[in-house]
Design a protein around this nucleic acid. Structure first.
Length: 463
RNA sequence: UCCUCUAUAGCUCAGUCGGUAGAGCAUGCGGCUGUUAACCGCAGGGUCGUAAGUUCGAGUCUUACUGGAGGAGCCA
């Protein structure tokens, strides 16, 4: 018995029509009349389910009628075209084998459930239309990102998840320790004795692979990282998670313009790849999650992203300051409401905001000639806000050392990072793309918890 | 962490002015020869998130707590 994927049947239907097929899947819906019944079977390989018709000629007809939603079945029968009906074809069953039954209290019923309810059944929600579509697109999106960089000969670098560097400074970190928290060893002066910890010093989960990535960029020229990232921030929003994935390319002999070109072509590549390879899923999002999604993505993929400097952006925003709860002026950080106004009202497409005041950006960003701004860029997209943050890196040893000192940090804590500026420094740039935010943008799904298979947020670490 | 909203049947919700609980779907049983979240009939199903308070009486009013949602900050 060769079980064929439903995807294979839909994609090569002519080859299967009129022939006997065997499929294995889970019951989405089942209903019976006196002498026959219908099963909507979904096998996970394709967004659309396949309809099975079973008659009372089957020896186990009564048992099939009692089958519950969610049960696993293996069905053999003839594939018949149904041009008059809603579905293109169906299987006239000659054999229905109950692989594993379900029960009447199966939490997914053949009706619409709220997304919040589905969130409470993390282990079952992948069986629903919405999450089938989300997680197939997530998978394709990851593949598209690897393809994009590999086609351009970027080297994929696995930067460490456990870091002993306490100088990443991008948010709260999760500490990693093997110390017995019920009996913490102390030194004579009462501090925690990390000499007894696994790594002989305090360690944390990474909040960014960028600094490590830079070392490889200064060896391989073009590299990217793609891996999990951890932030212990107490944020409770639709777009923050404690564990998320990030893509961080780093390119040498390149400046901020090259960086933005890379970011823009990457976003367009991902959009085109997903539209081409998940048409059914994208149509579903367009119809039921975010009307106008496909048109918007196609528009983004075929037009140039907007560009505006921070200073210009402030000028634009100051003219409509009465719209905002937080008034803008040069030097202030852009709030969510300002970012949304820029990308949703002014540009109506993704826009790069560049050259921010150095005070509101990280220490490693390249100081511009004006001495006031740095070569930073944020890419803002409608509906999500910041999806990419990047910069050209400060490659001048003395300027970087001065900036580190200016911020009250110690250059000696950044030994390896300073060495890169000492031994053959070169201009270089990079950015970080929030993978989940990218999936949200592609699908129109508005809560990050619904694009992560097993989301970890404050107070929530199920399964 | 702050602000706002919210919690009633397995699910989605209604419940008026404070007077001891209702619908649809789902489930069970019966009917139906082509359904599309099938349809028709009958039935079962509730400590109204938790704890206190006001009241003759609380799903309804008050307070606290817990969970959920949205917004803000932080960021990707």
């Amino acid at each position: 018995m060769d079980i064929v994927d439903v995807r294979e049947i839909f994609r090569n239907r002519e080859q299967y029509l009129g022939k006997e097929v065997t499929v294995g899947g889970w019951v989405r819906s089942i209903r019976d009349s006196k002498t026959f019944g219908f099963i909507v079977l979904h096998d996970g390989t394709f967004f659309e389910p396949i309809q099975v018709v079973y008659h009372d000629a089957l020896p186990n007809f009564d048992a099939i009628c009692k089958t519950n939603v969610g049960a696993a079945l293996i069905v053999t029968g003839t594939l018949v075209a149904t041009p008059e009906a809603k579905q293109p074809f169906e299987i006239q069953a000659t054999e229905v084998v109950l692989e594993g039954d379900s029960t009447p209290d199966y939490p997914l019923q053949k009706k619409r459930h709220s997304i919040e309810y589905l969130r409470t059944i993390t282990h079952l929600r992948p069986r629903t239309n919405l999450f089938q579509a989300v997680f197939r697109v997530r998978s394709l999106c990851a593949y598209a990102i690897h393809r994009f960089f590999q086609e351009r000969d970027f080297v994929y670098v696995h930067t460490p998840l456990i870091t002993g560097s306490d100088c990443e400074g991008a948010g709260e970190m999760f500490q990693v320790t093997t110390l017995d928290l019920n009996n913490i060893p102390k030194t004579d002066d009462g501090k925690i004795d990390y000499s007894q910890d696994f790594f002989n010093k305090p360690t944390n989960l990474t909040v960014s692979g960028q600094l490590n990535g830079e070392t490889f960029a200064m060896a391989f020229k073009n590299i990217y990282t793609f891996g999990p990232t951890f932030r212990a921030e107490n944020s409770n929003t639709t777009r923050h998670a404690a564990e998320f994935w990030m893509i961080e390319p780093e390119i040498a002999f390149a400046d901020l313009k090259d960086d933005m070109l890379l970011a823009e072509s990457m976003i367009k590549y991902i959009i085109n790849f997903v539209l081409e390879n998940a048409p059914e899923e994208m149509k579903f999002f367009n119809d039921f999650v975010d009307k106008g999604l496909i048109e918007r993505l196609q528009h983004v993929a075929s037009s140039d992203f907007g560009h505006v400097t921070y200073t210009e952006a402030i000028e634009i925003l100051e003219k409509v300051n009465d719209k905002f709860e937080y008034k803008v002026s040069w030097g202030c950080d852009l709030q969510t409401e300002h970012e949304r106004y820029l990308t949703e009202e002014v540009f109506k497409k993704p826009v790069f905001v560049t050259d921010y005041p150095k005070e509101i950006k990280a220490f490693y960003m390249k100081l511009n000639e004006d001495g006031k701004t740095v070569a930073a860029m944020d890419c803002l997209v409608p509906g999500i806000g910041e999806i990419i943050g990047g910069s050209q890196r400060e490659d001048d040893y003395d300027k970087l050392a001065a900036r580190i000192t200016e911020l009250g940090m110690k250059p000696e804590d950044y030994g390896f990072y300073m060495d890169l500026r000492k031994f053959g420094t070169a201009r270089h740039a990079g950015f970080g793309l929030g993978f989940e935010r990218c999936v949200m943008y592609l699908t129109g799904v508005s809560n990050i918890r619904d694009v992560i298979p097993f989301p970890r947020t404050v107070n929530n670490c199920e399964l």
